[in-house]
Design a protein around this nucleic acid. Structure first.
Lengths: 211, 211, 211, 211
DNA sequence: AATGAATGAGGTTTCATTCAT
DNA sequence: GATGAATGAAACCTCATTCAT
């Protein structure tokens, strides 16, 4: 919970949540536009609809805003993933991956921010946030495990999960190249097909399967 | 060529190259450690082995250092790729991808920097740098095209190339999760296998192959 | 109005005026002593009685201080002229010119500053300031026109006004030569007499008066 | 003599003169354009046609360039005055004043520089330069004295000389207002006429002429 | 005598943070 | 609880001057 990580001088917890929501909403836009470092606290305060003084009643340092923003994004993404690719609900891996890609499309901007600014967080906040990311990858792993046929090493599952996860983000952070060629539908379709089919090569594949 | 993009007051071109090499060498380390924004120009000068005044004889603005660093990394990566996965030389896609992954492993730090700081470049420098990236992806495309059997849509080739490209970088920027489980050899092996094999699913695959 | 030309981040307008007054007061002294270029912003802040950070809450660039100073001087001079040589009040040209010269004597330092530093203003501020100067010359023209007998070309009026105007300033910027010989009273007296009498020459004057 | 005031490390005096001429020629243009303070030594060197290192073989400090420039201008103006309004040659005050005004017209730019940058000179150089100015005023005084009829107080002569002197410069530094209305011919004509005729007033002049 | 690379003091400006109201 | 004026450390960058070649 963000409240535990970022103390505020304000007692009224409901108010703290409200103000922090305003803050995150304002800041995300700015971070998308110009990045964390080029955004000033004054701009954040203004975009949030209150004064610089008030801003500092709800955070201690500028970095706290970044943390709050990242945390909010992760929470939203994770919540959506829990809804959209719930292993208990989802009927196929294909459907799950499609849902995930569409989600990444919807939240492109947020994903890019989260992606590029995490390294600006203080070490401990980074750990907190990366933990969230592990959990998301774990969700993908679970879906994969559930829908795969035959035995499959844990490592393989993990790697596939990572691949899918990154391919989702990649739709956002490589839009300058991908979104010229593909629509999100085409992208999702093709990635899924590649995932399932494998590649036919001219040469013989190495046969020694030690798996 | 960097010389064209970043003017220097120094006339001796050889010296400019030499000093800029020192500069890039010093700056990369700092950027890896603390990122571009948290690195000061004085630190760059010191790490480069000359005074702040001298630094500014070879660049105009701090951003120029970032550009030089990015440019240098891209150039080195690209040069290495041209050696290692030359479509004329390389005997198989598998070998090419392996080489590319090993290269990404060697240049992890640089790749991470280049990856995370590009957005801090001025717009035109970004374009310049993204062009370089397109060229690298194109190299991968060519190798794929050469070694694939049967007909394969351009889009598919492009997407596979992007996947491989990003999976290489991912080895660096997701090391906190990947390098706990895999060695680079295992990683390369497994990624290649996934690439070739496809995934066996319990359910029927959608049959409508319009390809 | 200076408020329009030089934006401030401070909202309280009264405070802006107050602080800018402090600023102008402090800066004038420094500019008189050492000139605009040799005065540092830190010195200005200190002389104004606040910190460098505060200084920059009330201006954007150092040049703004110069503009504020020039504007203030012009405003004060103009206001005094409007009081002292009001064409409706003043009973004779002689009296008006005397008043003007005494004013220039009182405000010597300011006039010298304004005079020597205008060229350091950005182009648009220069125009603004020269406009003020035109207005002052126009005041003199009006007084002249009102008190002159017989027909007199506009050009002649304009030139006389300019002469008087500059002779007033000259009392300040040529003090090193003039104030060794004259008191302001003697100076004013003699200039007025010269203005009225003309010069008796040995030779015949050129007779072709096309006026 | 400038050689005495500004030492050089170079022995060959002819060379010193040559180089300093180049320097002054280059610097004047720059000072006219942007003023002394905004002109860098590098720009001066380049405009002079040699390197920054060479520049410093012929001066000690940047201010020396300003001094050399001012000195050169004063010398040229003075030399021209000695030619053009030589009291032994000139046949009338009118002609002398005309010549002086035309000279000021020719040397407008130089006069403006000299006028606005003198205060940036070190104190002792200022004295040196003001002395030159006194000498020029003295030349005007002499011409006046020679051509005036009847007795005339020294002070009056001095003041008239100063007026003429400043009116000449004024043609340059108030060009933004004067040169919209007058050609130099018209300006010279009218100033001379004003000088000779005096002003007809409606009111009685004060009669107590203690002169 | 000429060069131009190197230097670093010092200038302007920004901006996160505080605290009195 | 909210405000916003005040602060000053510290950032970027310039440029007069030196000195080895």
């Amino acid at each position: 919970m963000a409240d535990k990580q970022v103390p505020s001088t304000i007692k009224d917890e409901a108010l703290v949540m409200k103000r922090r929501n305003q803050m995150v909403k304002g800041a995300v836009t700015l971070f998308i536009e110009k990045g964390f470092h080029k955004t000033t606290t004054r701009e954040i305060a203004k975009a949030s609809g209150f004064s610089i003084g008030t801003l500092y009643e709800y955070i201690r340092k500028k970095e706290d805003v970044l943390f709050l923003v990242c945390d909010s994004i992760y929470q939203r993404v994770k919540a959506r993933m829990e809804d959209d690719i719930d292993p208990a609900q989802v009927s196929s891996l294909i459907q799950a991956v499609h849902s995930y890609f569409y989600l990444m499309d919807e939240m492109q901007d947020e994903v890019v921010v989260m992606y590029q600014e995490v390294k600006s967080l203080p070490k401990d906040a980074q750990d907190y946030v990366l933990q969230k990311e592990r959990e998301m990858v774990a969700m993908l792993e679970e879906v994969i495990r559930k829908h795969i046929s035959g035995p499959c090493s844990e490592e393989k599952v993990q790697l596939i999960a990572n691949n899918i996860f990154v391919q989702g983000q990649m739709w956002g952070f490589r839009r300058w190249i991908l979104q010229r060629t593909f629509t999100i539908e085409a992208y999702a379709d093709l990635q899924v097909r590649l995932l399932l089919e494998g590649l036919p090569l001219k040469e013989k594949r190495p046969s020694g399967n030690k798996e």
